[in-house]
Design a protein around this nucleic acid. Structure first.
Lengths: 228, 228
DNA sequence: ACGATAGTGATCGTATACGATTTCGTACCT
DNA sequence: AGGTACGAAATCGTATACGATCACTATCGT
């Protein structure tokens, strides 16, 4: 094909190598809960399902392993990573640190328009409390923080945040128990955080607030777990 | 082979799947500087070199990509990731955050024996300054902090620290320029950090000190870069 | 009846093979 | 001479195939 008459339309080509497609497909199914924790990821089945051979699928799964979304055992296979309480604690604690840092680093770059958008999202979250819609609440929560992170000057840190979120995503439809009381506090803390950023507060204070915001959710979980 | 007469010697079996071996082999060569940044990782060559086929090697390389040690381009191949000044900045900043957190979390679990060991390592570092041995200095520096992290309660954070270190390792033998003045300060800061931990200081203060300790190295680099 | 053991099926791990894509050198045209 | 177009070599991407390993079950012996 020497001549490129047309503008080389990428058409509806699913984009990327099959390995890449497999990666995205499996990741999506994990994150959105089609494959719940413990689900056995059988290479052959997934390959047949996607219409690929096993090699790209295998590669995709190893990549997901590196992200912590699946666990892998030699000669046995891969399963969607569950989150036991310990793992949950590790993940939340790590998130509190990287989110705190991301928030503080981004704060100076958040303009008033972004603040307004974030505030709108937060008000939506408040409504979710009344309708009791935990899934949407979680999504909006990520949207809220994503707005604050929009101009984060350090992509590495942002990446760590996203990995943490993905890791927690598998919880949504299974183990996770929504704690409404905590959720309401969370919304209030969002508003406080916005005020802090608007006022051009010290980076340290912003970082501390953002970190505590995440820690508090962990604490609420721990307190609840203790009562069971 | 039903009978296991001998104690099932793992002998000199290189342990693990070939994919795993390939992963470790290539990683080692990158970290220790055999493959310098920009080095082209050709699947066929590495496979022939290790005596494997290309499939496990390919898998190994994709894993290294996920860790940021190599960059990958579709249909072109992989090269050892270089670190341009921007990447260096991102990595150092992220390290300052995760090392700070790791140090603060570990501090309450560092006993006096560990302190003594760390102090000994630090004195070795001081000697390296006189003999001008940057490679050993860097190694000892990692040893020093590793002692402090020995009982880190959060393995995820520790993992992030190690990833950062690996990422920086490729610099050692190439771009990196050792700044002796900074190195001397670094040793002093180590001692100050030990005193802080010994005294049972506030977690916040320890975190701040550890974070600044890493940031200062970055700042020294930036200052130097500016004068060139 | 219970535990150990051998056999079977499912699944993984890796080698090999081939088509697809890129890169680079060379010849040709302007 | 410079740039473009063609072609060959190198390398990647994926499919297929087969040997190796593991889980499971049924059988045998005690």
């Amino acid at each position: 094909m020497t001549e490129t008459t047309f503008t080389d339309l990428p058409v509806a080509a699913p984009a990327g190598s099959k390995s890449e497609q497999a990666y995205r497909a499996v990741k999506a199914r994990i994150v959105e809960g089609t494959y719940t924790p413990g689900y056995r990821l059988v290479l052959g089945s997934i390959a047949k399902d996607l219409g690929f051979s096993v090699v790209p699928v295998r590669e995709a799964i190893r990549r997901l392993e590196a992200e912590g979304l699946v666990t892998f055992e030699r000669n046995v296979g891969a399963t969607v990573a569950g989150i036991d309480p310990t793992e949950y604690l590790y993940t939340m604690q790590t998130l509190s640190i990287v989110e705190g840092a991301a928030t503080a680093l981004s704060a100076p770059l958040v303009d008033s328009v972004a603040i307004a958008r974030a505030r709108a999202v937060n008000e939506d979250m408040r409504k979710c409390l009344d309708h009791f819609d935990p899934v949407r609440f979680t999504q909006l929560n990520q949207d809220f923080h994503s707005i604050l992170f929009e101009h984060c000057p350090n992509p590495h840190i942002l990446d760590l945040v996203h990995r943490g979120w993905n890791r927690l995503a598998s919880l949504r439809s299974s183990t996770f128990r929504f704690v409404p009381g905590r959720a309401r506090n969370s919304v209030d803390e969002h508003e406080a955080l916005l005020k802090l950023i608007e006022s051009g507060a010290d980076a340290d204070d912003i970082e501390k607030a953002a970190r505590l915001h995440r820690s508090a959710t962990l604490d609420a979980y721990l307190a609840q777990a203790k009562t069971i």
